[in-house]
Computed example of a mutant assay.
Amino acid sequence: MRLLQRLRTGREARPALSTTYRDYTLYGLGLPSSGGIAVAEALNLLEAYDTATLTPVDPRDPVGRGPSRDPGVDGAAVGK
């Protein structure tokens, strides 16, 4: 199969990257693409946390502290 594909396209098929996340096996593009590696690393980092107990944060909050006390930062009108 590899020889046939190489003759057709001029390239050889590359093996897929695989990783596990909790009870799942995930597959992504292998090298030279870095997308599969980045996703695998991110999921490996997340696996250490119980994500079901995490609370959502406002994506506009760069530090994840919740609403700001500074008037005007969260779009609140100054002087209210």
Score class of each variant (00 low, 15 high):
A40W: 13
V78H: 05
S33A: 12
L54R: 14
A48Y: 04
T20M: 07
A40M: 11
R69A: 08
Y24Q: 09
A76C: 03
T20Q: 15
G10R: 10
N44M: 11
L29F: 02
P59N: 03
T25R: 15
R6F: 14
R2H: 06
E47C: 09
K80N: 09
L26W: 05
R65H: 07
P67I: 06
G64V: 12
D50K: 14
P15V: 14
A16Q: 04
P32Q: 03
M1I: 03
L29P: 06
D50A: 09
Q5N: 05
D61W: 13
G64D: 05
L3A: 15
P62A: 04
V73T: 14
D61K: 05
Y24C: 11
T51M: 12
L7K: 09
V57S: 14
A76K: 02
P67Q: 07
M1K: 06
A76V: 01
K80P: 12
A16K: 02
D74T: 00
S18K: 11
P59L: 11
R22A: 09
G28H: 02
A38Y: 02
D58G: 01
D70G: 01
L17A: 01
K80M: 08
R65T: 02
E41G: 03
G75Y: 04
R22M: 11
D58I: 00
E41T: 02
T9L: 08
A77L: 12
R11A: 15
T19N: 13
E12P: 03
P62H: 03
P15A: 13
R8D: 07
R65E: 11
E47G: 09
V57R: 15
E12I: 01
N44F: 13
A77I: 03
A16M: 06
Y24F: 15
G64R: 10
D61S: 02
L43F: 13
A52L: 08
R11P: 01
A76E: 04
D74Q: 00
V73W: 14
A76G: 09
V73E: 09
D61Q: 04
Y27L: 12
S68R: 02
R6V: 02
R2F: 08
T19P: 11
T25Q: 12
N44E: 15
V73K: 13
D58Q: 02
A52Q: 11
Y24I: 01
S33G: 04
L43W: 13
G36H: 00
M1R: 12
G66W: 03
S33K: 07
P32K: 04
S33C: 02
S34G: 00
A77H: 07
A16L: 06
T53L: 10
S34A: 10
T9A: 12
R11S: 14
G64P: 01
